Simulated scan of single mutants.
Amino acid sequence: MTDTPNLAPELQRIADFYQLETDAYDGLRSIHDAVEQPLRHDFDHLPASAQGVLGSFERLHASVSYNLLGATAETLRLTQEADLSEEQRASHLESVLARGIKLMLKNVKAARRDPVLKRQLNEPFAD
């Protein structure tokens, strides 16, 4: 395992599993911080069977953060190139994060009935 004290343990497992370059850790950490509150809210409203798919909020949080990394980077790049105000850039980024959370929660709900999807979602955390 990589020795990086700045990542939460579950987030570090994801980074190690997907062999994420250490120069992407700051972006991953920023996304992780940005999605925590809205994700926690949505997680608390999931059925218990969906909450248990990944075993903990922390694992879901790490998975969502990683899955949003590419989309967030692309959104930042595109909004930097466009003639947009900071408010418009923030709005686009918020929208991407919200859609990513929604999609991931949809996958978690589906994984309750799909053992293959459940296994894929849990693979980074397998011992």
Rank of each mutant, 00 (worst) to 15 (best):
R113I: 13
K106D: 04
A111M: 13
D114P: 03
K109P: 06
A98M: 11
D114T: 13
D114F: 03
D83E: 04
E86G: 13
A98E: 05
E86H: 13
R89T: 10
I101S: 01
K106H: 15
L103W: 00
L84W: 09
A110F: 11
R89Y: 04
S95C: 10
K109A: 01
V96K: 08
A98P: 08
K102V: 02
D114M: 12
T75C: 14
S95E: 05
V116L: 10
I101H: 02
L93K: 05
G100R: 00
T75Y: 06
Q80H: 00
L93E: 02
I101L: 08
A90C: 06
Q88V: 12
L78E: 01
N107K: 10
T79W: 04
A110R: 09
L76F: 05
V116K: 12
V108Q: 02
M104H: 08
E81L: 13
E94G: 08
R77M: 08
A110H: 03
L76I: 11
N107I: 06
D83F: 04
K109E: 11
V96C: 04
L76R: 08
R99F: 12
T79R: 02
P115A: 05
L105H: 08
A82N: 11
A111W: 00
N107C: 11
K109S: 10
A110I: 12
L93T: 13
R113T: 09
V116Q: 10
M104G: 02
V108S: 02
G100S: 14
L105R: 09
L78P: 01
E81T: 05
L84C: 08
L84E: 15
R113K: 15
L78D: 08
D114Q: 15
Q80N: 15
K102Y: 07
K102C: 04
G100I: 00
M104V: 01
L97T: 02
V108W: 02
L78V: 02
K106M: 07
E87C: 05
L97M: 15
R89I: 12
V108E: 00
R77L: 06
R99Y: 14
E81S: 15
N107Y: 09
A110G: 14
T79Y: 05
R112T: 03
R89G: 07
E81W: 12
G100Q: 06
A110E: 10
P115G: 09
S85G: 07
V108R: 01
H92A: 08
R89Q: 03
E86Q: 08
L103M: 09
L78W: 03
R99K: 06
V116G: 06
R99I: 12
Q88H: 06
P115T: 11
V96D: 09
L97N: 02
T75I: 05
S85K: 06
H92K: 13
E94T: 08
K106G: 01
D114E: 10
A111E: 04
R112N: 13
